[in-house]
Design a protein around this nucleic acid. Structure first.
Lengths: 143, 143
DNA sequence: CCGCATCCTAGGCGATACTG
DNA sequence: CAGTATCGCCTAGGATGCGG
């Protein structure tokens, strides 16, 4: 894992395994999952579902409160939940009645992912002031 | 950190600190940094820069090789590098000559972030088959 | 060699209205 | 209550050309 920085040739060799992981985006879900965490709502959904089982509408209201600036649209919540379900992070339980009763909760796999996401969030929060400071310095020398 | 799942009221109380972190997106760089890692190129740039110092063009060629499906455009590479620089993850060194010589490398903060990103990538890769399996099952019952 | 300006397209997301 | 369909906006990001 130690890396010497000299010839480009070496660098290419060193990064070969990363290419292995990143190059074949087709089969590797790395980009998709990273994209999940980076999008507007999915991480927040994971955090809320970490507290238990939620109905669709209740979850929607909760997300609106947490993010506050603006509520998630019904359509997008359904989309996000479907994506999370497809990847095995969320379990969906429905009764085909009218009105429907649908519940969502984390799977064990989703719970793991939530833990990983939370670690990243914690790291970012811990470095928030450093980042903020860097931005101020950068922006000041930009004008 | 232990969470009981019963009344919505409890859930709301439990999530109060998450609201603290997520609700005020204006000052909190959490979403922005998460977005960084989720976007098309930034994580890959961090991985490459973890190997040392790179010139713009060289870096561009390297990224093209790693991601292969399609090279990063010159414009976007400049944009991404600027964002990373603004947040204090990347240091830029330039000589105002013609032709210019510009070099990029990770800051200590950027190096940390790269480590975090790599942990996430490793986790995803470790669970890749589980995710893949979940998707297959989901897609099969969708038709 | 590097950055910027311009143009263009695909996709994420919100709003609304409608069904079972 | 949950999901779907349609619309329209806005941003990420690719292509190209110029200028220092």
């Amino acid at each position: 894992m130690k890396i010497e920085n000299s010839q480009p040739g070496n660098k290419i060799a060193v990064l070969a395994d990363d290419m292995e992981r990143h190059g074949k985006e087709r089969d590797a879900p790395v980009r998709e999952v990273m994209g999940l965490l980076g999008d507007r709502w999915s991480t927040l959904i994971l955090l809320v579902l970490a507290t238990g089982t939620w109905r669709h509408a209740e979850l929607r209201r909760m997300l609106g409160q947490l993010s506050a600036e603006q509520a998630i649209s019904q359509r997008v919540l359904t989309l996000k939940l479907r994506t999370l379900e497809r990847d095995g992070f969320v379990a969906r339980t429905a009764s085909a009645e009218v009105p429907p009763k649908v519940s969502y909760e984390l799977t064990p796999l989703g719970s793991e992912l939530q833990g990983e996401a939370r670690r990243l969030i914690d790291w970012i929060n811990a470095r928030a002031s450093a980042i903020h400071h860097a931005r101020e310095g950068f922006d000041r020398s930009e004008d």
